[in-house]
Design a protein around this nucleic acid. Structure first.
Length: 603
RNA sequence: GGGGUGUUAGUUAAGUCGGUUAUAACGCCGGCCUGUCACGCCGGAGGCCAGGGGUUCGAGUCCCCUACACCCCGCCA
């Protein structure tokens, strides 16, 4: 064992010492963050997770120690002993410990370090590929350490909060039965059952409902979930949920509990008071005004739905718009005030951008002094009446630029939603993190229970098949399923969905009708969800719940730009781990033991 | 599956119209330096220009393909 550690114990962290400690004999362990060698005196910035402390080794004080100190290099892991001394006139205001320094009287090198592939500094512009390859070094950097410390704090506060509120932390299996629908599952072959597979849980959804049936009343869990879908900046194949379920509750009860948690987290982590109750918005309004169900409300720039205007004017002299409406499509516009000047080149770029999302083009119109349109494909043929109607609907002012999308509803929404955010970013309308950035929490409520699956020609559950419909909509279950709305809700923050849940359907009779509307036979339902259907028949309490995306929450809380910055060991967009090389090959024998055969030849 | 951006010393970048020895900063190595904290000064090493193919007298530069990373669409109840 090193002499330090076994004989000489650490007394303080590197972020701790202040002028109150002057005169103390201290022992610090850490890494060499920087060195400044002045010959007779060597300055070392020693770093641990708490901060930096300057240590000085002087030749005339301890020549032998100074000699070792001269050999120190960046990222050597060392222990030092010395005396805390005032810096006098040489205070460094950038450091928390900047009023003092430690005059080293002893030092031990625990381990040397090769030159690191990138500097261990707060802000670096090293390619993420490199950072992921040496993740253990990236995690040594203060910003990531701070983020993970916040993450640990969120875990801790969450556990305390729910425990104090009579919730029980109960676990659920990761390896379960594959259930069709929803996210793609990771599969685990069963050695003991040839040809059979477990599925890794995409969420504890069914189990947590069964906890309610079992009478546990209030459940929570901070739990890993697995989904084999394509990755995004805010999506990892394994991620963490704060999972909650409650019996004998309605929507407002769920909101109360969750708002309480959020308020506590923001207060404790950022010192910010988040006002309650959070804003609520119906799903349909969110789609109409913002094109998705997770609007960023830190800026406005709403869409205007023009479908009815176009229909009333029978196309208003624009055949393309008439065609879009006739084919059950929609027409949307967005107004860019004259203050958001866009050059011709920028507009052309925008057009390429939207084409990448499936748009056929980007129709626009520049509004003139008298409300006339120029620079527009519609300008020549549009009737004055429809032009005026559109101007009025959109609140168009002279100098504004109007952007339009029309056609298939889902494409129009996607394109316009992305366009709205894209242009707001470009125009600097979104407050930066830490600059008085607003926290716009929003409950998106009251969505339709079903969405029409065009490929299957069927109504399908928009969320899952166990969401409770609104009582007043029950008559439409058979006649017009599209008109049935339900007790589902998403929690949205600044354009990210950070949680979602529902009040569950606990009535077996209504349950049957829902399956029927989706074209699922009783046998089908039984084979997939038999255990849950049984459970609902045996005294299932009314219940509901929610799951928060813990990683996303921490991402927003810390101002991180991607989920990869709040997950200690993340995967790349192709789902690989650049540090370990996972996923990797296994040998034929392992596969044989699992009764599995690959259809791909190893390269 | 589709659209976009990128890949040049360890790192970050420059590299003109295709032209002869591919630059710089930081880091690294050696030397000097007792008040630095982006320490300073002197000297030095370090390159399969992502990989493959093509055009050309000549390719880091032009063309094609592939790989990898990132952003987006699809997908994610």
């Amino acid at each position: 064992m090193p002499r330090f550690i076994s004989e000489i114990k650490r007394t303080h962290s590197c972020g701790q010492l202040t002028k109150d400690d002057i005169g103390k004999e201290v022992v610090l362990f850490g890494w060499v963050a920087n060195r400044r060698d002045h010959g007779g005196a060597v300055f070392i910035d020693l770093r641990d997770r708490e901060g930096l402390t300057q240590v000085v080794f002087e030749e005339d004080v301890r020549p032998d120690v100074h000699e070792v100190a001269e050999k120190l290099r960046l990222e050597y892991c060392v222990g030092i002993r010395g005396k805390v001394v005032s810096r006098g006139g040489n205070v460094n205001p950038k450091l928390r410990t900047g009023e003092i320094e430690v005059h080293g009287t002893d030092v031990e090198i625990f381990n040397r370090s090769e030159p690191t592939p990138f500097p261990i500094e707060d802000s670096i512009d090293t390619a993420e590929e490199k950072r992921l390859q040496y993740r253990f070094l990236d995690l040594r950097r203060a910003p990531l350490q701070k983020t993970l410390m916040t993450r640990a704090r969120v875990n801790h506060l969450t556990r305390n909060y729910f425990t104090e509120n009579r919730f029980l932390e109960l676990e659920t299996p990761f390896m379960g039965k594959y259930t069709p629908g929803g996210a793609r599952n990771f599969l685990v072959p069963s050695r003991l059952n040839p040809g059979k597979f477990y599925a890794l849980a995409e969420s504890p959804q069914l189990y947590k409902q069964l906890y309610m049936v079992a009478g546990f009343d209030r459940y929570f869990q901070i739990v890993r979930c697995f989904r084999d879908e394509d990755l995004r900046l805010d999506r990892q194949p394994e991620f963490t949920q704060i999972d909650v379920e409650m019996s004998f509750v309605e929507q407002n009860d769920v909101f109360d509990v969750m708002e309480g948690l959020i308020v506590k987290l923001w207060k404790e982590c950022l010192g910010i008071d988040v006002p309650r109750p959070f804003q609520r918005m119906p799903f349909d309004e969110s789609m109409a005004r913002y094109g998705n169900d997770k609007p960023d409300l830190r800026f406005d720039m709403p869409h205007t739905v023009l479908t009815e205007v176009v229909r009333q004017h029978q196309g208003g002299g624009v055949p393309l718009l008439l065609e879009a409406v006739d084919k059950k499509g929609i027409v949307k516009g967005m107004r860019l005030p004259s203050s958001m000047q866009l050059s011709r080149t920028e507009i052309d770029k925008l057009e390429e951008y939207v084409k990448g999302m499936g748009a056929k083009g980007l129709a626009r119109a520049k509004v003139g002094e008298g409300g006339e349109w120029t620079q527009s494909p519609f300008a020549k043929t549009i009737t004055a009446e429809m032009r005026q109607a559109i101007n009025q609907a959109m609140g168009a002012q002279p100098g504004d630029l109007l952007l339009f999308q029309f056609g298939k509803e889902s494409t129009v929404h996607t394109v316009m939603a992305n366009l709205r955010v894209h242009l707001a970013k470009k125009a600097g309308l979104i407050p930066e993190y830490g600059s008085g950035g607003q926290w716009r929490f929003l409950w998106v409520v009251d969505p339709p229970l079903f969405e029409y699956d065009e490929e299957a020609g069927q109504w399908a559950a928009a969320h899952h098949a166990f969401t409770r419909p609104r009582d007043q909509d029950l008559p439409y279950l058979e006649s017009d399923p599209g008109k049935v709305y339900c007790w589902r809700y998403d929690l949205v923050l600044n354009g990210f969905e950070i949680g979602g849940g529902s009040i569950r359907l606990h009535d077996p009779e209504v349950q049957k009708r829902v399956f029927k509307a989706m074209g699922i036979s009783e046998e089908d339902a039984r084979s997939k969800f038999g255990f849950l259907l049984d459970a609902l028949k045996m005294g299932a309490p009314p219940h509901g719940g929610i799951a928060l995306g813990m990683d996303r929450l921490v991402m927003l809380l810390t101002g991180a730009e991607s989920l990869r910055d709040v997950v200690a060991w993340p995967k790349t967009q192709k789902g690989t781990d650049l540090m370990t090389g996972a996923p990797g090959d296994v040998d034929a024998r392992q596969l044989r033991d699992l009764y599995v055969k690959s259809t791909t030849e190893p390269k």
